[in-house]
Computed example of a mutant assay.
Amino acid sequence: MNAIKTIPITTVDNLSKEDFVEHYLKTQRPVLIKGGWTKDWPAYKKWDINYMQSLAGDIEVPLYNNEKTEGKGKSVAIAKKMKLYDYLEILKTQPTDLRMFFFNILDNLPQLLKDFDYPDIGMKFFKRLPVMFFGGKGSNVLAHYDMDLANLVHFHFHGHKRVLLFDPSQSKYIYRVPWSVHNLEAIDMDNPDFEKYPALKNLQATEVFMEHGDALFMPSAYWHYINYLDGGFSITLRSFVKKPGTLATLLYNVIILRNFENLMRKSFGQKWVNYKEQKMVKKVNKKYRNSKINA
């Protein structure tokens, strides 16, 4: 069985604002904080799937799965819609590849705002987007980076998850699909085919195992691939990077990249998807072979 090379993430019990800024925010290094930022939150004691069910009411939510989006559909397609209560019941009782992402609690469950704080760690958080992510045991999140290029602090609750982080400098090895912010969906990141995708041999991931109350700092433009080891959920707080180059790329991603991709899919369907993916794989493989010859 093949595997991506990994190194363990730097892990601490707690971090002061000064140490976080100096050693992680300024240097853009990921770090895992084991409960030290959340143990004083009401959420630390209250947030589990049963509590979320008690608040769910009649909310209906869009769900996504691990199946590849094909044809003329948008690059991210809804698999089904379901009452939030019923979806959470599935997470409690059985494995499922159904996931929910970017669930904005301001719009859906504003009562959760009293259960957590925005930590004073030198980041100016964008308080309009406290978003949650839910997944069942066995669900995976395609390797991607956030198109808004924000610095992220990802807090996990209820259950366990595994995260692989990749520095932006490794984008050339990850088989990024053109006009997207994710890698090739055909790649199994848990058992990669090094014959078809040899550049993956050059990847080195920072491996993270998260449990209830953990906080993970993910710097801007870091790739992340996620396995839900149990049914659970997380909340992400984001802080936008104000460097001119980053702002320009953010606007390009949001205004041009995503809309162009959906337009091409709508116009040319699977032919467009196959064309751009095949061309990309050939290009990445050629660069990998040439680098080996010249090494």
Rank of each mutant, 00 (worst) to 15 (best):
N285Y: 06
P130L: 01
G245A: 06
K266W: 15
L229A: 02
M123Y: 07
N108S: 10
L113W: 06
A77L: 15
F157R: 01
M1Y: 12
G245N: 03
F101T: 13
D190K: 12
M218A: 08
Y228N: 13
D193I: 14
W272N: 04
K45P: 06
L109D: 00
F233A: 01
D117E: 15
L15I: 11
L106N: 12
Y228W: 13
L113Q: 08
K34G: 04
N290M: 11
V131Y: 00
E185Y: 14
F209Y: 12
L98P: 00
K74D: 14
K72W: 10
N108Q: 10
G136V: 02
H212C: 04
L216E: 04
V131D: 01
P42D: 10
N104F: 04
N274Q: 15
K124L: 12
S171C: 13
A77V: 14
R99T: 15
F125M: 08
Y197K: 09
L250W: 13
S234M: 04
N274P: 11
E277S: 10
F20I: 11
Y145N: 04
G57D: 03
Y173Q: 05
D188H: 09
I78W: 02
L113D: 10
H144D: 03
M280R: 07
I293V: 15
P95R: 03
Y24I: 07
G213N: 00
K92L: 07
A205V: 05
T96Q: 04
Y288Q: 10
R176W: 13
E60Q: 08
M52A: 09
M264Y: 07
H182S: 10
K172P: 02
H156Y: 14
K80Y: 02
V76K: 06
H156P: 08
D188R: 11
S16Y: 12
K161T: 05
V254Q: 13
T38D: 03
F233V: 00
R238G: 05
Q170M: 08
I9H: 03
K287A: 15
G73S: 09
T249H: 08
A56S: 11
M210H: 00
A3S: 14
Q278S: 15
T249I: 11
I9E: 00
G122K: 09
W223S: 08
Y252T: 11
L152D: 08
N140H: 15
H224M: 06
K282F: 04
K46L: 11
V208K: 01
D193P: 10
Q170G: 06
V153C: 04
I59C: 05
K81Y: 01
V61Y: 00
N285P: 05
N259S: 14
G232I: 03
A186W: 15
V31L: 07
G73Y: 07
E185K: 15
L98K: 00
V76M: 13
N253F: 02
N253I: 05
F101Y: 14
K124P: 12
